[in-house]
Design a protein around this nucleic acid. Structure first.
Lengths: 236, 236
DNA sequence: TGACATAAACCCATATTGCATATAAGTAAA
DNA sequence: TTTACTTATATGCAATATGGGTTTATGTCA
C-alpha cells in the first residue's frame, strides 16, 4: 500500500482501492450551569462502553464540510443552532475506537445558560459539571465518571483551550446573553478559570479594553442596587 | 444515507457501505532562513495546479495515527526527524480538492536553520520567505506566489498560530540550537512577529521567567564582545 | 425610616514595561 | 601597545498595569 504517496500524485489515487478511515465530528458542549463550568453529554446504550457517558457526535457526510457537519450535529443534539462553534482538535489514535478506524474532529460549542437548559429539556443530553482536573460528574453530588473512548482527553483539552483563550478572546461572551452585567462577566471568567478574581481589577481591565458598551439600562430582579447592563461592541 | 447517526450507534455502521472521505496530513514546515520566517514548499508537477507550489503532504494510512503519519511525512520530505511537530488545524471544505473529497489535518513543524538547509539539499523542497500578510516568495527577490488548493490559508493560519504562541510557549526554542545567545532568541521573536523588539526589555523578560540557564560558555566567531550562551531549562 | 447588600468609584503600593544611557569585553586596525 | 569600533550587559527612570483595600452610591426590604 502506497502510504507515502505525495499529495501532488493524488490524481493517481483511486479512493475505492484503499482502506480509508471513517471521519466523525464530536462536540464538546460547554456552558455555565449553577455557576459551574459544565458539559452536555449523551449516555451510550450500545456496546462498547454501554452505560458510559460520551460526547455527542456523528459521521461527516461526503458532501458536507467539517464546519457544516458540526453545525448539523449541534442542531440535532441540542435542538437549535446559534451557539458559538469552533474547531478544537483532531484525534486519530489507531485504537481509539475498538471497532474500526475512526478519526474525529472535535468541535467546541459554547452555550448560554438558557441554551443549556433548553438542550437538556429538548434533547438526549445531560449536564455534567467539570470538577477539579479532569473529571466530570453527572447530576447533583455524584462521583466523578469515566467517559467513553478518549472523550475524557477531548473534554480536558476543550477546558484547557477555553481557559487559555478566555482572557484575550471574546469566548466569554458566548456564555452570556446580549446584555449582561460586569458581575455576570466576572462569574463566567471565574467559573472557567476555577479561581476567584479581584473585582476592581477585573472591572478596570474589561472597561479599559474599550469593547464594552454601556447601555444605560440596569438589571432588574435584584434585591440590591442593580448593576448596569453592557453589550459587546465591535472590535476596533 | 444516514449521515446523522449518533456515534453511540457506530456498531451498526458498515464502513464499506458508505462513501468515505480521504484523509491526508499536510505539513507546514517553518524555520528561519536569512533572518526571515520561511516555509519549505514542494512544486506540483501534475495537474491540477501543476506548477504551483504546495505544502508537502500525504495520505494517512489505515494503521497509523495522525501524529505518526505526520512524523513519517516529515522524515520523507526533509530527510530526518527530530523537528518540533504539533497539530495545527483540520481543513475539510468539500471542494478544497477538485478531484475528490479530501480532509487534511495540517501539522506545524519547526526547524532549525541547519535543518532548513539540510532539507533543501536533501529533499524535494524549496525555501519561501513569508512576506507581509499572506504571500510567500520563492528564492531571492521573486514576486509573491499563489499556492495550490487552500494551502495559502493553511500557511497563513500556521503563521498566525506561531505568532500567537511565540511569547508564552517554548516554540521559539525549536528554531534554535541547544545553546544560543539572547540576541539569537530575540532574532527569532522578531522574525516571527515581523516587528523589532526593545532589547533590554526583551532580555529582562526572558531572564525573569527563570527558564534560561547560563552555561558560562560564550559564542565564538564574533568580531566583537561575545555573548553568553544559554540553554532552555526544564519548566518549574 | 433604617438595615442590608451590592455596584461603582477611589486610593495606593507594587510589578511590569518602554526607553535612554552607561559600562564591559571582545576584535581589528594604526 | 594603543585606539577605534562593535556588541553585550547593567542600570536608571518614567509611564503604565495590576493587586487589593476603602469609600460612596443606590437599590430592596423589613
Amino acid at each position: 500500500m502506497n502510504i507515502s504517496g505525495d499529495s501532488e500524485f493524488l490524481s493517481d489515487y483511486d479512493p475505492t482501492a484503499y482502506d480509508c478511515p471513517s471521519v466523525t465530528v464530536d462536540l464538546v458542549l460547554l456552558g455555565l450551569h449553577r455557576q459551574r463550568l459544565s458539559a452536555l453529554l449523551v449516555r451510550r446504550d450500545q456496546p462498547p462502553q454501554a452505560g458510559h457517558w460520551a460526547l455527542p457526535g456523528g459521521f461527516v457526510a461526503i458532501d458536507e464540510s467539517l464546519d457544516v457537519a458540526a453545525a448539523r450535529l449541534l442542531r440535532d443534539k441540542v435542538g437549535f443552532d446559534g451557539a458559538h462553534l469552533e474547531q478544537l482538535y483532531s484525534f486519530g489514535a489507531v485504537d481509539r475506537d475498538p471497532r474500526m478506524r475512526v478519526i474525529t474532529i472535535a468541535y467546541l460549542a459554547l452555550l448560554r445558560e438558557d441554551q443549556m437548559n433548553a438542550a437538556v429539556r429538548a434533547g438526549r443530553v445531560a449536564v455534567a459539571a467539570l470538577e477539579g482536573e479532569r473529571l466530570a460528574a453527572i447530576g447533583e453530588d455524584q462521583a466523578a465518571l469515566p467517559l467513553a473512548f478518549d472523550h475524557q482527553a477531548i473534554l480536558a483539552l476543550a477546558r484547557d483551550r477555553l481557559r487559555g483563550k478566555i482572557d484575550y478572546s471574546d469566548l466569554a461572551f458566548a456564555f452570556l446573553p446580549p446584555r449582561f452585567t460586569l458581575r455576570a462577566l466576572q462569574d463566567v471568567h471565574e467559573a472557567v478559570l476555577g479561581t476567584p478574581l479581584n473585582k476592581p481589577a477585573f472591572r478596570r481591565r474589561m472597561l479599559d479594553r474599550g469593547r464594552l458598551v454601556a447601555t444605560g439600562m440596569r438589571e432588574d430582579e435584584a434585591s440590591h442596587r442593580p448593576a448596569e447592563l453592557f453589550t459587546l461592541g465591535s472590535a476596533r
